[in-house]
Amino acid sequence: MSRIDPTEFVQALDGQSSLKFPNERQQSHFELGVTMAVHKWEELNVAVDNSWGGPNSADKRDWISGIVIDLFEEKIVDVQLVEETLLYAMLDEFDVHVDNDSALEIANMIIKFYQKAQLNDFSDIDILYERWQIRQQNRQAQKVKVEDDPENPSSDEEDDEEHEHYHEDQHIDDSMEVDNGPVVDDDGFTLVQTKKGNRRR
């Protein structure tokens, strides 16, 4: 990787009060670029995945993207300012001190995205966005459906089993011989109730 110059900066054009693009297409692509760069920051992703910022960790990552975008309301922004903003946000929101150059790399990427957006070149942003979409699809596909515990069946399964047991018990009850006393047939013979059937006596 080539050496990053932390003093590299972007400056608003003459007559403009901020670095915000007057062209909506440029501004929306740049904001997407910032969001994708922040999502690319591995140290932040680890913090979010482990909920180091609490249950709203994912929202805090989006908030970080927002405060970086807000930096460009000023007339001059350099790589170092973006890097410091990322580091302070990580420390404040996730209680994580990043001691490598990962924030510097993300900050440099954001400045490059701005410079290219000025030239209406959104190719790098689009590529990063496409890769992010693929990662999201893969993550969704990898979600494993939790199977029902056979030791603790669902209520539906219990209802089905009770229903089956009811019919089995009913079938057993219907097939059992019940002794209701002597039975006399039409010829006057007394029938004896046995398991094998009725016999004359």
Score class of each variant (00 low, 15 high):
Leu32Gln: 06
Leu32Cys: 09
Thr35Asn: 11
Met36Asn: 13
Ala37Tyr: 00
Ala37Pro: 11
Lys40Cys: 12
Glu42Gly: 11
Glu42Pro: 07
Glu43Leu: 05
Leu44Ser: 02
Asn45Lys: 03
Asn45Tyr: 09
Val46Arg: 05
Val46Glu: 07
Ala47Val: 09
Ala47Met: 11
Asp49Ser: 14
Asp49Leu: 14
Asp49Arg: 12
Asp49Thr: 12
Ser51Asn: 09
Ser51Lys: 01
Trp52Phe: 15
Trp52Arg: 08
Trp52Gly: 07
Gly53Leu: 05
Gly54His: 04
Pro55Gln: 06
Pro55Lys: 05
Pro55Cys: 04
Asn56Pro: 08
Ser57Leu: 13
Ser57Trp: 09
Ser57Pro: 03
Lys60Ala: 04
Lys60Glu: 11
Arg61Cys: 02
Asp62Ile: 01
Asp62Phe: 14
Ile64Val: 12
Ile64Arg: 00
Val68Lys: 00
Val68Glu: 02
Val68Cys: 05
Ile69Lys: 14
Asp70Thr: 08
Asp70Leu: 15
Leu71Met: 05
Leu71Asp: 01
Leu71Asn: 00
Leu71Trp: 00
Phe72Lys: 02
Phe72His: 02
Glu73Phe: 01
Glu73His: 01
Glu73Trp: 00
Glu74Lys: 13
Glu74Thr: 08
Ile76Met: 08
Val77Ser: 05
Val79Asn: 01
Gln80Thr: 06
Gln80Ala: 02
Leu81Thr: 15
Glu84Gly: 12
Glu84Cys: 07
Thr85Val: 02
Leu87Ser: 07
Ala89Phe: 07
Met90Asp: 03
Asp92Ala: 10
Asp92Phe: 07
Glu93Trp: 10
Glu93Lys: 03
Glu93Cys: 03
Phe94Cys: 08
Asp95Cys: 12
Val96Cys: 10
Val96Phe: 13
His97Cys: 13
His97Trp: 11
Asp99Glu: 15
Asn100Lys: 07
Asp101Ile: 06
Asp101Ser: 08
Ser102Ala: 15
Ala103His: 02
Glu105Tyr: 11
Ile106Val: 15
Ile106Arg: 02
Ile106Ser: 04
Asn108Gly: 13
Met109Asp: 10
Met109Leu: 10
Met109Thr: 11
Ile110Asp: 09
Ile111His: 01
Ile111Arg: 00
Lys112His: 10
Lys112Phe: 12
Phe113Gln: 05
Phe113Glu: 03
Phe113Ala: 12
Gln115Cys: 01
Lys116Ser: 14
Lys116His: 13
Lys116Leu: 10
Gln118Cys: 14
Gln118Thr: 12
Leu119Gln: 06
Leu119Ala: 08
Asn120Met: 15
Asp121Arg: 00
Asp121Gln: 02
Phe122Thr: 02
Phe122Glu: 02
Ser123Thr: 04
Ser123Phe: 09
Asp124Glu: 11
Asp124Ser: 01
Ile125Ala: 04
Ile125Cys: 06
Ile125Met: 07
Ile127Ser: 12
Leu128Tyr: 12
Leu128Pro: 07
Tyr129Gln: 01
Tyr129Ala: 01
Glu130Gly: 05
Arg131Pro: 09
Arg131Ile: 13
Arg131Glu: 14
Arg131Ala: 15
Trp132Asp: 08
Gln133Asn: 07
Gln133Asp: 10
Ile134Pro: 08
Arg135Phe: 15
Arg135Asp: 14
Gln136Asp: 11
Gln137Glu: 13
Gln137Ile: 14
Gln137Trp: 15
Asn138Gln: 12
Gln140Ala: 04
